[in-house]
Amino acid sequence: MTLILASRSASRRTLLREAGISFEARAADVDEAATKARHDGDPASLALRLAEEKALSLDVPGALIIGGDQVLEFEGRAYDKPRSGEEAIRRLVMMGGHTHYLRSGLVLAQDGQIVWRHAGSAAMTMRPLTQSEATAYLDAAGEGVLATVGAYELEGLGARLFERVEGDYFTILGLALLPLLEELRRRDALPW
C-alpha cells in the first residue's frame, strides 16, 4: 500500500523514516492562514482541522495519506511559528515560568475521505526566562528553531528551557507516532 506524508516538515519525515516506514513526502496544498482565520474552535480542534485539510489536499487513488499539524496554545490562544528571532525571544520570555500546550492533530485519508483521526496534547512547563537567557538560547540553537511552533526543539538545546514536560514525546515532536503505527498495523500497512 502506498503511504504518503502530506507535509514539508523535516521532523515528521525524520520520525517516519527512523521508524522504518516506507513513504513518499509531498507538500500539502493548504492555505493555513485562511483556515486559521475562519476557524472558531479551540486550538486542539484547529490542529485536527489543519491535519484533515492537508491530508485531503492530495488526491492519490488508493494511497493512505498522513496529514498532521501542531498548534501551540498559551493562555487559551493559538500561536503560529514566530516570524523573527525577536518575536521568538519575546514569546519565550512570555511563556517562561508558565505552562503551554502543544495540540496535535493526525489523520489518515484515503480516496478523499478521512478514515482515522487522532488528537494529542502535551503540557510544557518552561522555567522562568530572562530576555538575555532567551537570546542566548536562540543564538546557540540557531535560526532553525524558528521553523517550530514553540521556537524550541525539546530534543536538543531546548530541553534546557523546561522544568516539566507531560505528554507523549512524539506528539511533542509533531507526529503522534505510536498511535499512527498501531493504526497502520491494524490496516495491514506495516508488516509487523
Rank of each mutant, 00 (worst) to 15 (best):
E52S: 14
E133N: 03
P61Q: 06
L138H: 07
R90F: 01
G62N: 05
E87L: 03
T125R: 15
Y137T: 07
W116A: 01
G120M: 02
L154D: 10
L102E: 00
T125Y: 02
R103T: 04
A151P: 05
G97F: 04
A151H: 08
L58E: 04
S84K: 03
K54T: 08
A119C: 14
M126G: 00
A136L: 12
W116I: 06
V115P: 07
G112P: 07
P82R: 01
D69M: 08
G62Q: 04
R90Y: 01
S132K: 14
G68Q: 00
V145G: 07
L138Q: 05
M124P: 03
A122N: 04
V107L: 11
E155K: 04
I65L: 13
L129T: 04
A134Q: 08
R90C: 06
L72M: 15
G120D: 04
G120R: 01
R160W: 11
V71H: 00
L102Q: 01
A51V: 13
S104M: 06
L138M: 15
L92Y: 05
A134C: 11
A78I: 06
H118A: 06
W116L: 02
W116H: 09
L64K: 02
D59K: 15
E53Y: 09
G144S: 15
H100G: 05
D69P: 03
T99A: 07
G97L: 02
R77K: 14
Q110I: 01
E52W: 12
L157T: 10
G156E: 15
E73I: 06
E133V: 07
L72E: 11
V107Y: 03
D139I: 13
L129A: 01
E53K: 06
L58G: 05
S57D: 09
A63H: 10
V60N: 00
V107S: 06
L146H: 05
G158Y: 05
L129F: 06
R117A: 01
T148C: 15
T125A: 05
V93Y: 00
G67A: 11
L154G: 12
D59T: 14
Q110D: 02
R117P: 04
T135P: 01
L146P: 10
A119N: 09
T125L: 07
L146N: 10
Q110V: 00
D69G: 12
L157H: 14
K81S: 12
M95G: 00
Q131D: 10
E87W: 03
G67M: 12
A141V: 12
G85D: 09
S132A: 15
M95R: 03
Y137P: 03
G96K: 02
S104R: 05
G67I: 13
A136T: 12
Y137W: 12
Y101K: 10
L161I: 07
G96R: 02
R77G: 00
E153S: 08
E143I: 13
Q113I: 02
R90Q: 13
E75D: 15
A109C: 14
Y152H: 13
E73F: 02
D80T: 14
A140G: 05
E155C: 07
T148R: 06
E87Q: 14
R77H: 13
R77A: 14
T130I: 06
E53R: 08
M94N: 10
I89C: 08
L106N: 09
L56S: 12
H100I: 09
E73T: 02
H118N: 14
A134I: 11
R103P: 04
A51Y: 08
E86N: 05
T135A: 15
V60M: 01
H118R: 13
D59C: 13
G150L: 07
